[in-house]
Design a protein around this nucleic acid. Sequence first.
DNA 1: TTTATAAATGCAACAATGTTGCATTAAAAT
DNA 2: ATTTTAATGCAACATTGTTGCATTTATAAA
Lengths: 139, 139
Amino acid sequence: MMSEESIKEYLRERALKATPIRVGLLSLLSERESAIPYSEIQENLKSFDRVTLYRTLNALIDGGIVHKASTSGDETYYALCSQNCSKHCHKHEHIHFKCTACHEVSCMHIEQAIKISIPNFQIEEVSVEVKGVCDKCCK
Amino acid sequence: MMSEESIKEYLRERALKATPIRVGLLSLLSERESAIPYSEIQENLKSFDRVTLYRTLNALIDGGIVHKASTSGDETYYALCSQNCSKHCHKHEHIHFKCTACHEVSCMHIEQAIKISIPNFQIEEVSVEVKGVCDKCCK
DNA sequence: TTTATAAATGCAACAATGTTGCATTAAAAT
DNA sequence: ATTTTAATGCAACATTGTTGCATTTATAAA
Ligand SMILES: [Mn+2]
Ligand SMILES: [Mn+2]
Ligand SMILES: [Zn+2]
Ligand SMILES: [Zn+2]
């Protein structure tokens, strides 16, 4: 949950103009615990042109502010990046959990670091997507 | 690399009719080390209707014979399943490596088992996608 | 506060991806 | 050879994503 002013500041710090759709998108993403599917973002920002929304998503992903949180299903989910991401360098030390019951997608920091090494390969990025049932849905 | 006859057998064992497009798809996937992007599959099987190809991919995924190997980029990659997959139960003990140089996507078994546990969550499936530079491209 | 300018927006048009219904065809069981 | 059930091809449609271009707007400079 971020104020409109802090969102604008956040954008300008990253050399991105603080336009209404960008503020609207970040506001939407910040007021939610879990990642948001494209269709829902679209619905929430339907006063803006569809093309502009795509360009906004791409601009904020390029800017290191937003990331895709799940792409394996039929819908793409988006979430806010943490502080340590920057332009063209997303550094996520978390996994994405998708609940098969409530369909929520969450970014989660986990204890055991995921260290993968393959002989003679150079590892740049590891992304882990976990499916299962979340704590709320497990009762 | 599988013979046409063994592919047909393989399909029938899983209660799937051995139709030309299915044999063609499995033949294509089996003659390649790495996973194949949709566009290339489409190109190779362009004598068949596009709709039929989608239905074929879905039928073989449902049947536990084929799986998506990468969905995070702009293209979906497909690969053959190993033996231990079955109808509605894909059990992959491997990761997907995408080379940022040659763009090949490969299924790879790795030493360290990826064991993830989250308190109060029920884990059903873990998929790991790794990006980097493959051994060939590292020289 | 006004002006300048570079970037973002909206719109139209397009391309690619994916789905559904239905009549026809073909695989495999009898 | 006949039957039956499933798969195919085709048309039509829906969703997702992209590009070019004229217009507008956020911000920096005057
Ligand atoms: Mn995340
Ligand atoms: Mn695989
Ligand atoms: Zn849940
Ligand atoms: Zn490579």
